[in-house]
Simulated assay, not measured.
Amino acid sequence: MQWVPIILAIILMLFGLYVIFFFIPFRHWLAAVFAQVPVSIGALIGMRLRQGPPQIIVDAMIQAHKAGILVPSDVLEAHYLAGGNVDRVVQALVAADKASIELSVQRATAIDLAGRDVLEAVKMSVNPKVIETPEVAAMAKDGIQVKAIARVTVRANIDRLIGGAGEQTILARVGEGIVTTIGSSDSHKKVLENPDTISKTVLAKGLDAGTAFEILSIDIADVNIGKNIGAQLQTDQANADKNIAQAKAEERRAMAVAHEQEMTAQISEMRAKLIETEAQVPLAIAKAFRDGQFILESK
């Protein structure tokens, strides 16, 4: 029984060491010290108490420090607690610094919290992205349908990432510009001969206004001839006119038949009245004989 207090003391000591090492992240503090990152052990203990991950924060600070960027631990911890991606923000800051793109910590965290991929935006600022529109169909003034596909080269605009429209808006505006340009062409042949007029006209409209991108170029990838919409519309109009004429003719025929039936009914009524009148003549003669009003003269 004399070993029981010793065992309990060992258990309590081990539990105390576990609690100390859990709340005091010595390993992360030593890593920060050797990397010459300015973070105190008290700050790391505060992170643990606030349910912030010291490992993620310290690793991000070390990565930024190695790239020559000073990021305060409070900023990173606040960003993590707000639901942001600390690693992506630090990687974006490093990439922007290497590419000589002006990007502050505050703007990077704001972009990340806005739901944008800040690292992808920085990469797109360095390497523009090509997005392809779906097939856009429009009709020239001669009634021929023209189908076109465009490739739009865009570059992310860091200053407009917060609140700026996305890729779908760019595609919609480019499609609208293609429809307008084709629709204003006198002939589909002009569109086929000079497809670059579409891209030049659309690019001059400033379609990237209010978006998170900057349009660098618009290139027509494919142009095809569609249906003869003008002829089809004329055919449909002719069929509609024919149906209207047939309906009016059927209406006139029905009215004629109704009029004929009405006249036949009137004639039948007159015949019935005539027969009725003729039937009254013998009765009147018989009555005249009975009354002595009708005397036959004999020769």
Results as ranks from 00 to 15, higher is better:
G166W: 09
D74I: 11
A64F: 07
N127C: 05
M139E: 15
V130D: 09
N85D: 14
R107L: 14
D142H: 09
R88A: 13
E120W: 13
T180C: 02
E120Y: 13
G175A: 03
R88E: 10
A92I: 08
L119S: 03
A138G: 05
P128T: 00
I101G: 03
R116A: 15
G183H: 08
I111F: 07
I149H: 12
G143C: 07
E176M: 05
K98I: 07
Q168R: 15
A78Y: 00
V75K: 14
I178L: 11
A172C: 03
E102Y: 15
A114W: 00
G164P: 11
G177N: 05
I170D: 02
I178D: 05
S125F: 10
A78T: 08
L119F: 06
I178E: 04
A60L: 06
V122A: 01
N127W: 04
Y80R: 13
A140P: 05
A172K: 13
V146W: 05
I101A: 07
A165I: 07
A172H: 14
Y80S: 12
N127M: 11
I178F: 03
G68Y: 00
S100N: 14
Q106I: 14
V130G: 01
G177V: 06
N157C: 09
T153D: 03
D87K: 15
R116F: 09
A121L: 13
T169S: 05
V130F: 08
Q106P: 00
G175C: 11
I69V: 11
I111N: 03
I162V: 04
L119Q: 11
A121E: 14
T169W: 05
A150C: 12
A78H: 10
T133W: 05
G115E: 07
V105F: 10
Q145H: 00
I178Y: 02
G175K: 08
T133P: 03
